[in-house]
Amino acid sequence: MSNGCDRRTFLKKSLATTAGIGLVGTTGIFAKTKAWATEPANGPMPVRPLGKTGHQVSIFSLGGETTIEMADRHDEAVEIINRALDLGVNYIDTAAWYGNGASELNIGAAIKDRRDEVFLATKSHDYTYDGTMRLVDQSLHRLQTDYIDLYQHHFVGHFGQLEDLQKENSARQAFERLKDEGVIGNIGVTGHSSRILSDALQDYPYDCALITINAAQVVMDDTDQLDRFFEIAKEKEVGVIAMKVANRGRLLEKGLSIRQLLPYTMSYPVSTTIMGISAIPHLEEDVRIASSFEQLSEEEMAEIRAVAQG
């Protein structure tokens, strides 16, 4: 496509042909009001600024893994996503890599009539210009949308290196073109290393960064650089998204509960915390915890960390 208008017009026509245009029905503010009224927390979740994006994000958000990425559990995935939106979740994170595209397909089916209710983030694991352009078109079709609020480089340090993004014809240049065309709204970076992500934020004016934060400090590389990461993120007004709170449930096997692990991560200076959900009762519990969240003290965090690391 030669420009943003052509790309977006093409996508809109394609989506209308394959999916049609639905009605809001019982979703939207009426569904949210009903959901809040029946929840123990009895109200919407707190929100925080998502860096310089201008979006006020709920402190708990939905990740695109677990049930959401399973092609053979499509109906359950759609039900979880709709319930999350009803409960006030307004940020969903996924990736082209998750479930070999199934995560995006499930999310697209759920949000096609609720697109204006969610800040939608997905990722490209291809660090080349042409590869990213192919992936973004696939993602847009799967997600049944013509724009992505946050497009992210997936796992700097694994799928690709920071140096790869500094080269000619890199994914970074593709991201910039897509932003100029209005196909994506913001540019982000993800990874497990505080050092690599710190270097990335110093190298480029990213809008958001997705990083691993959990009490056991597992799947967290270069934790000695975590303070540096948060200092740079604050200075540059980067929205920080936390992930891997329970490390796919493994930390729950150590005798800790999600009522400890989720507030622990939320007590860092993050905009929101994403979690993959396997069943609606788990989602509802996470939302209750987020709705009643209170900042943990240094001592409380140290106690949780000691158990998790033991």
Results as ranks from 00 to 15, higher is better:
96 A>E: 12
220 M>H: 05
231 E>S: 13
15 L>H: 13
47 V>A: 08
126 D>G: 01
167 K>R: 15
123 K>T: 07
177 R>I: 01
113 D>K: 07
194 S>Y: 00
78 V>N: 06
221 D>R: 01
173 Q>E: 04
14 S>G: 11
55 H>Y: 14
36 W>D: 08
247 N>E: 14
299 E>H: 08
114 R>I: 15
276 G>I: 03
98 Y>H: 05
181 E>R: 09
284 E>K: 14
252 L>Q: 07
297 S>I: 06
206 Y>W: 06
242 A>S: 12
193 S>E: 02
262 L>C: 10
130 D>L: 03
120 L>W: 00
305 R>S: 15
124 S>I: 04
271 S>C: 08
47 V>E: 09
3 N>V: 04
288 R>V: 09
84 A>H: 10
2 S>L: 13
297 S>Q: 07
161 Q>V: 11
225 Q>I: 02
11 L>H: 11
307 V>W: 02
305 R>E: 15
142 R>F: 03
56 Q>S: 14
181 E>D: 15
190 T>M: 04
213 I>Q: 03
7 R>F: 05
240 V>C: 06
217 Q>M: 11
206 Y>R: 02
196 I>D: 00
255 G>C: 09
156 V>Q: 06
110 A>T: 07
157 G>P: 01
9 T>H: 12
26 T>F: 14
62 L>R: 01
120 L>E: 04
13 K>D: 14
1 M>H: 10
210 L>V: 11
237 E>A: 13
271 S>I: 11
51 G>T: 09
218 V>Y: 14
113 D>C: 08
193 S>M: 00
125 H>L: 03
58 S>C: 07
79 E>S: 13
85 L>K: 09
140 L>K: 05
11 L>Q: 09
25 G>L: 12
72 D>Y: 15
151 Y>A: 02
146 D>L: 05
103 S>Q: 12
27 T>H: 13
78 V>S: 06
44 P>A: 11
9 T>W: 05
26 T>M: 12
277 I>Y: 04
178 L>T: 03
7 R>I: 08
194 S>L: 00
86 D>K: 02
223 T>I: 13
159 F>T: 01
25 G>T: 06
117 E>N: 07
119 F>K: 10
116 D>L: 10
258 I>F: 14
277 I>V: 13
263 P>C: 06
94 T>L: 06
41 A>L: 12
140 L>A: 09
111 I>E: 00
157 G>A: 07
13 K>Y: 11
151 Y>Q: 01
104 E>P: 09
232 I>K: 03
225 Q>T: 06
186 N>I: 03
169 N>A: 03
144 Q>I: 10
154 H>I: 04
194 S>C: 00
98 Y>S: 08
104 E>C: 15
288 R>Y: 09
23 L>F: 15
200 A>Y: 00
229 F>H: 01
38 T>G: 15
93 D>R: 08
21 I>G: 06
93 D>W: 07
56 Q>P: 13
127 Y>N: 14
207 D>V: 06
196 I>E: 04
214 N>V: 10
4 G>H: 08
272 T>I: 01
243 M>T: 03
110 A>E: 09
17 T>K: 12
267 S>Y: 06
25 G>S: 12
165 L>E: 00
113 D>W: 01
85 L>S: 05
257 S>I: 05
80 I>D: 01
227 D>H: 13
37 A>R: 14
104 E>S: 09
283 L>A: 10
207 D>M: 06
308 A>D: 00
67 T>Y: 02
293 F>A: 01
108 G>T: 05
10 F>G: 09
194 S>A: 14
149 D>S: 10
245 V>T: 15
250 R>L: 15
